[in-house]
Write a protein that binds this DNA or RNA. Sequence first.
DNA 1: GCGACAG
DNA 2: ATCTTGTCGC
Length: 232
Amino acid sequence: MQPADYETLTPDQAIAYQNELRQKIRIEPLDKPIRIIGGADISFNKYSEIVYAGIILLKYPEMTVISHASVVSRTSFPYISGLLAFREVPALLEVWNKLDIKPDLLVLDGQGIAHERRLGIATHFGLVTDVPTIGSAKSRLRGKYAEPANEVFAQSPMYDRDEVIGTALRTKRNCNPIFISPGHRISMEQSVEVIKNCIRGYRIPEPTRHAHLLVNKVRVDDSGKDTQFSLF
DNA sequence: GCGACAG
DNA sequence: ATCTTGTCGC
């Protein structure tokens, strides 16, 4: 199955594919140090099949932006909770292939293994590219957890039955926690450690925060390209 | 049956 | 996610 063919899948087939991919997930320590970390995100206009995907590259742990890439693509796969990867991975893969340099690790906006079948978008993308990934979500999809104390970096494990699938991490005082989970080829502990090193005063870690700003700018610029002519 | 439900 | 201004709180 190729990402380019995802749009031909029915929800049931997508779920069957996730159960297949599930066997290949590797939650283990990183095999090399991180020099460059990437952040990926997608943006789109409501009701449109056009999607703007982007990836930002930053030096780690300095968090200084090195470069970025973006692409305008399209998808017909709808947003279905639990099947987000089938809608966003194809476009993200296009940007990934445009990258002149590949990061040592990629942070995605969404879950890693904190998913009903352990196949959040970060895990899915990591498996497809064979690159270490971390899922950093703004809200919970799966797992029970105790509210972390109102202190920066207070954390609390997320449980699915008796299994720890993620960590609720408070990255800023008086702000809701974010939900971290390893995607592929990294451990739970390292995932949290890396994200903590990516916090610079905002609730969202730098990789994903910059990626979000990037794709939004690309979308707004592209959406207004028709109007610019009438201005002359 | 009812509530939950990444982006 | 996106649509959108002001506004309450630290």
